[in-house]
Design a protein around this nucleic acid. Structure first.
Length: 311
DNA sequence: CTCCAGGCAGTGT
DNA sequence: ACACTGCATGGA
C-alpha cells in the first residue's frame, strides 16, 4: 500500500485486520462529524477509542489507537472490498489539505482542528433516506429515527455484548410501508417525502449507477425531483454517498461560518454561498465543507454575535 | 413557556 | 426571482 504520502501497512492476525502507520485519519472525527448516523461509541480512553458501526448490511467493531486501526473479526477481502472505500483510506488527505490551504489560508484553524476527518462513502439508499429525515432535526434525534427504522424493517447483521445490530432496510423492503407507518416512526411531515423517495428508487427514476456517472449538477438536479429533497440534502447525498467532492451542502452552520469568513458578517443567501464555494474550492468543496462544518459547531459560532475570530 | 434544529414546499408579491 | 410561513417532534 503506497498512497497516503507515507506508507500504510495492512496486516492480518487470526481474526482481525490491522492497519499500522495510518495518517490523516481520526475515527472519532470521521464518525461523529455529522455525515453518518449509524455508529455507537463502545469505549474511549487514553489508549484509544472503539466504535461499532453498521453499513452495507454489515456490523463492524473498529478501534483506533494512535496510528493503528483494528477492524475486528474482519477478513482481508472484506476490508479491501468494503471498509477501505467506506473510510476513503486510499485517498491522500495530506495532499488535499495542502491544496486547500494553498489558496485558502482562512481554513488553517479548521483544518488543523479537524485534520483526521474523512469523507465516508456510504450506501446510497440509506444516505438518501437518512438525509431526508435530517431536515429540521438535531443529529441525536436523526440517529434515533434511523435506528428505529432499522430495528423495525432491517435485519440483524451482528451482535456484540448481547446487543443485536440491525442493517438499514432496502428500498424493496420499504416499498410497502405506508406513510402512516413512517409517521409512527416519528417522522412527522417527512413521511410523505420518504414514500416518494422510495417509489422513485423502485421505479428507477432515481438510480445509483446513473447518478454515480452523472456530473455533480445533473446528479443534484435529478435528486431534487424527489419531494423533500432540496439543494442541501441533494448535496449531502452527492458528497457522502456518491463521493462527488464538488458538492457543498450549505446548512445553517456552514452558512454562519461562511458569512463570518467571506461575507464580512453580512447575511447572505444560501445559493450565493454555494456558488461562491463552488467557485472558490472547486473539486475540493466537499472536503472544505467538512472541515468547516464540525469546526463551526464545535466552536458554537452564533449568528447573532461574533463569538470568535476566524482569521 | 418559547425557541430552534445539518430544510423544504407552498403561497403570495 | 424573492420573502415569508407551516410543518412534526423533541430538546434546551
Amino acid at each position: 500500500m503506497k498512497k497516503n504520502g507515507r506508507k500504510m501497512i495492512v496486516k492480518k492476525d487470526k481474526k482481525n485486520v490491522i492497519l499500522e502507520e495510518v495518517v490523516d485519519f481520526d475515527l472519532s472525527q470521521t464518525l461523529e462529524c455529522g455525515q453518518c448516523f449509524r455508529y455507537e461509541k463502545i469505549s474511549q480512553n487514553e489508549d484509544g477509542c472503539e466504535y461499532i458501526i453498521v453499513a452495507f448490511n454489515k456490523m463492524l467493531r473498529i478501534r483506533q489507537s494512535n496510528n493503528r486501526l483494528i477492524f475486528f473479526d474482519t477478513s482481508i477481502d472484506e476490508y479491501e472490498n468494503l471498509w477501505k472505500d467506506y473510510f476513503d483510506l486510499d485517498n491522500d488527505y495530506d495532499l488535499i489539505k495542502k491544496s486547500i490551504l494553498k489558496t485558502n489560508k482562512k481554513l488553517g484553524m479548521a483544518i488543523k482542528d479537524m485534520s483526521g476527518v474523512r469523507i465516508l462513502k456510504q450506501e446510497f439508499f440509506e444516505t438518501l433516506i437518512s438525509f431526508i429525515i435530517s431536515q429540521n432535526k438535531q443529529i441525536p434525534h436523526i440517529m434515533k429515527i434511523v435506528e428505529m427504522i432499522s430495528k423495525k424493517y432491517g435485519s440483524v447483521c451482528g451482535e456484540y455484548k448481547k446487543k443485536k445490530y440491525y442493517s438499514f432496510p432496502s428500498a424493496d423492503v420499504l416499498k410497502n410501508v405506508s406513510e402512516q407507518d413512517f409517521r409512527e416512526c416519528k417522522m412527522g411531515f417527512r413521511a410523505p417525502y420518504i414514500v416518494d423517495a422510495i417509489s422513485k428508487v423502485i421505479s428507477g427514476d432515481i438510480d445509483y449507477d446513473y447518478l454515480s456517472k452523472s456530473s455533480i449538477d445533473e446528479a443534484i438536479e435529478v435528486l431534487m425531483t424527489i419531494k423533500g429533497v432540496g439543494s442541501k440534502i441533494a448535496n449531502c447525498v452527492a458528497l457522502f454517498s456518491l463521493h462527488k467532492t464538488e458538492a457543498f451542502p450549505v446548512d445553517v452552520w456552514i452558512k454562519r461560518i461562511m458569512i463570518e469568513l467571506y461575507f464580512d458578517g453580512e447575511d447572505t443567501d444560501k445559493r450565493v454561498i454555494e456558488e461562491f464555494a463552488k467557485e472558490k474550492f472547486g473539486n475540493l468543496c466537499g472536503y472544505a465543507q467538512q472541515y468547516l462544518f464540525y469546526y463551526a459547531r464545535k466552536n458554537g459560532i452564533n449568528k447573532k454575535k461574533n463569538v470568535k475570530k476566524w482569521a
